[in-house]
Amino acid sequence: MRKFELNEVYRLEDLIGLVKNRADRDYIYAIYNKLGVENLALGQDIFVGETPSYDDDDNEVLPKKVQDADYEFCYIRDHFQDVIDLAVSQDPKVSDEALVRCLNYYADYDDFLDVVP
């Protein structure tokens, strides 16, 4: 399995695997994609980078690499981890497809989707 690093592009399923294995826990990061948070899908490229900053007027400023690649904010680390951790705790063999459903559900409803083994 690939090592977790910041400022890298991952396939969504590869990032899910790293989070399931807790390889990301020493990092503070945000997740960005080109289609927005509601449209996560397996096979999609996801950029993992620094968290947004804020200017003097409290406007969100995305990292330069994110802006240059035309990515959009998708998830903050804590929420992404929480969705995956809860689903894995409910079903240790949860599929990546089910995890993507959980992530999209959380993005739509700000609530967790239960996974039944």
Rank of each mutant, 00 (worst) to 15 (best):
78 D>R: 01
66 V>A: 06
61 V>G: 05
91 D>C: 15
67 Q>S: 08
86 L>I: 15
82 D>T: 09
83 V>W: 00
95 S>D: 05
76 I>M: 12
61 V>E: 08
63 P>W: 06
63 P>N: 04
75 Y>D: 05
67 Q>E: 08
61 V>R: 10
81 Q>N: 15
85 D>H: 11
84 I>K: 06
86 L>Y: 10
89 S>M: 09
89 S>V: 12
92 P>K: 02
68 D>S: 06
80 F>M: 12
75 Y>K: 01
80 F>P: 02
65 K>F: 10
92 P>N: 11
68 D>H: 08
91 D>M: 09
87 A>I: 07
80 F>T: 10
73 F>Q: 10
86 L>P: 02
75 Y>P: 00
92 P>D: 03
81 Q>G: 07
97 E>R: 05
82 D>W: 05
70 D>T: 08
88 V>S: 00
82 D>N: 14
78 D>S: 02
94 V>I: 13
65 K>Q: 13
94 V>F: 11
72 E>A: 06
93 K>T: 15
94 V>G: 04
71 Y>T: 04
88 V>K: 05
70 D>H: 10
91 D>R: 12
96 D>Q: 01
73 F>E: 08
86 L>G: 04
66 V>R: 03
87 A>H: 12
62 L>Y: 06
73 F>P: 03
81 Q>H: 13
77 R>G: 15
90 Q>E: 15
87 A>K: 07
90 Q>K: 14
76 I>E: 07
73 F>D: 08
66 V>W: 06
71 Y>N: 01
90 Q>Y: 14
76 I>Q: 04
88 V>W: 00
93 K>R: 13
75 Y>T: 08
69 A>W: 00
84 I>Y: 04
67 Q>G: 02
94 V>D: 07
78 D>P: 00
84 I>A: 11
87 A>D: 09
61 V>A: 02
73 F>K: 05
84 I>C: 04
72 E>Q: 12
90 Q>R: 14
61 V>M: 13
83 V>M: 01
75 Y>C: 03
68 D>G: 01
69 A>M: 05
91 D>P: 08
72 E>V: 05
93 K>Q: 15
69 A>N: 05
67 Q>T: 12
76 I>L: 11
66 V>I: 10
67 Q>A: 07
77 R>L: 04
94 V>S: 09
64 K>T: 12
74 C>I: 05
80 F>W: 03
94 V>P: 04
74 C>W: 02
91 D>Y: 14
91 D>W: 11
90 Q>T: 14
63 P>L: 04
88 V>F: 03
61 V>P: 00
76 I>R: 10
89 S>L: 14
69 A>G: 00
86 L>A: 13
95 S>R: 03
89 S>H: 08
91 D>F: 13
68 D>N: 01
85 D>A: 14
78 D>H: 01
67 Q>K: 09
77 R>Y: 11
78 D>Q: 03
76 I>T: 10
69 A>F: 00
68 D>I: 03
87 A>G: 12
81 Q>I: 14
78 D>V: 02
83 V>T: 00
63 P>S: 06
74 C>D: 07
77 R>P: 03
69 A>Y: 02
